[in-house]
Amino acid sequence: MSEIEILSWARGPGLQIATVIFVAGVVIRIFEILLLGRKANLAEAKGSEMSSGLKTMITRTVPDKTTFKRSSVTIVAGYVFHIGMFISFFFFAPHILFFKDLIGISWPSLPGAVIDACAVISIIALLAVLVNRLTNKVMRFLTNFEDLLTWFLTFLPLITGYFAFHRIGFTAPSLLAAHLLSVELLLVVFPFTKLMHTFTLFLARWYNGAISGYRGVES
């Protein structure tokens, strides 16, 4: 297979396979979670479940002061990586075209230099995340194979994207194909790993907010 053939495969059938696994996996997982159901609370409410749940979905994004102080490395590295990745993922013109093709809507892109900077920052932050994971006592204790796998699979698209952007080492079709394939790999494992938190964290936060809010506590 030539690199152009691999690229064509990655842009076509490969993407199709990955999308089917990703979409089906995520939908099944969400159904799996929601259909388990939750008993209605019979205690007299002190606050609203719904509004508090919705609020926590957003407010939990910001850590409280003491938590920030105690876990600053984890939080800063995590946030920088997530934000950097978010920006380079959603605001790079070629990516926007991908979304446009997929969902029919598009939005303004950011200049290449900004995307590049975000990707670099994100890569550095992700490396910091790994170092932190391996050196922080608690994280090292909690870390299992899945954590390392998902780290690696998240790192791959970033690094291949960076290489493709700067055309380092290989020809553009090879780099582009590598980038696409790495994304496809990420999509395939996504529904079966902790990467699902991308979606389920909103459910989790809602439940957390609802449980607390029902008792009149902001969480």
Partner: peptide
């Protein structure tokens, strides 16, 4: 950077099946 296939249809079918 666009897929060469109709991915939204694929996604829709996959979602429906799933």
């Amino acid at each position: 950077s666009m897929p060469t296939v109709d991915l939204s249809q694929t996604a829709a079918y996959a979602a429906a099946g799933a």
